[in-house]
């Protein structure tokens, strides 16, 4: 006779505990790696920010001195200002063109996939390649931009784009935005697929034009995605390093100095690792604050 075996509540509890243990065990390798390569450096950077250290000798505890110095340092403020301008520039020339392109491509357009691929392509390039390409474009001797200006009779506008304080940061922004708008376009396109088509029909019946439809129908439906992209852009733009460093190294003077290049300079060129860490911590706090604000906004809206 076949006896039907029924698990007791205790057995079920033990089974669930065993599964839990296996789960933790499987998580362990990733957790160890995360601890070594992310958590430990983050915690150590915070600790380091309270010390003076030249990277070779002993660490000397200086309490909040690095933070006080950072708030008094004019270059920190210049870098912060440049980061804000860079971010605004990327939003203006990366996010919004991305949104407009996505709106255009969301309609029935022949060769849409090809356009998507072309616009997204710069995002696939490493920042080193992007920097090399744009440094060639902006080169005052053989650069494409100056050649084009001369060809169309606007030679008087040709200049050393990366060597003039007024134009260096805008030039870097153009290079940054070039890599970014395609990415934004793809995100917005995905969001536009989920909009309600009946609202568009209703708007058209009511006589709304394309701009009115975009502002009153499209935007409200994807506003959380727009907000998400903008927050992501802010975070990404405050972290930018490679493109700026490779194009201008923060120069001329401090014209394109941003937080990340200044942290690098203080830590690895001047060997004030503690001071560099304190600026990095301040930058992290700022990015965290932006992220928290966004999350709250999203929660409230949901």
């Amino acid at each position: 006779m076949l006896l039907k075996y029924k698990k007791s509540p205790n057995q079920r509890k033990y089974k669930s505990m065993a599964e839990e243990r296996i789960g933790y065990l499987l998580l362990l390798p990733a957790l160890v790696l995360y601890g070594i390569f992310v958590l430990y450096p983050v915690v150590d950077s915070v600790v380091l920010s309270f010390y003076k250290w030249d990277g070779a000798g002993p660490r000397i505890f200086v309490s909040l001195a690095n933070y006080i110095q950072a708030f008094k340092d004019r270059v920190v403020w210049i870098s912060f200002r440049n980061n804000v301008i860079y971010t605004a520039g990327i939003i203006a020339f990366g996010v919004f063109p991305g949104l407009i392109l996505a709106t255009l491509l969301a309609g029935k357009i022949v060769g849409r996939t090809v356009f998507e691929a072309i616009f997204f392509f710069p995002r696939l390039l490493t920042q080193v390649i992007v920097a090399i390409v744009w440094s060639w474009i902006f080169n005052p001797v053989f650069g494409l931009l100056n050649q084009v200006l001369r060809t169309v009779g606007l030679g008087f506008l040709a200049k050393g784009w990366l060597g003039e304080p007024r134009f260096a940061l805008p030039a870097v922004i153009v290079a940054g935005a070039w890599t970014y708008f395609g990415f934004c376009m793809v995100i917005f396109l995905a969001a536009l697929q989920n909009t309600d088509p009946t609202l568009y029909d209703a708007a058209r019946i009511d006589g709304a034009n394309a701009v009115q439809i975009f502002i009153n129908v499209t935007l409200p439906q994807i506003k959380y995605v727009v907000a998400m992209v903008i927050v992501y852009t802010v975070i990404d733009s405050f972290k930018v390093f490679d493109l700026v460093y490779l194009l201008t190294q923060g120069g001329p003077g401090h014209a394109t100095q941003i937080m990340a290049t200044y942290i690098y300079r203080k830590s690895f060129a001047e060997y004030f690792f503690g001071y560099g860490a304190s600026i990095a911590v301040l930058l992290t706090c700022f990015i965290l604050a932006i992220s928290v604000l966004y999350l709250r906004y999203q929660e409230r809206g949901m």
Binding site: L162, G163, E164, P252
Partner: peptide, 9 residues
Amino acid sequence: FYPPNFVAL
């Protein structure tokens, strides 16, 4: 005395 746009060179 220096080349044009020397700061960017």
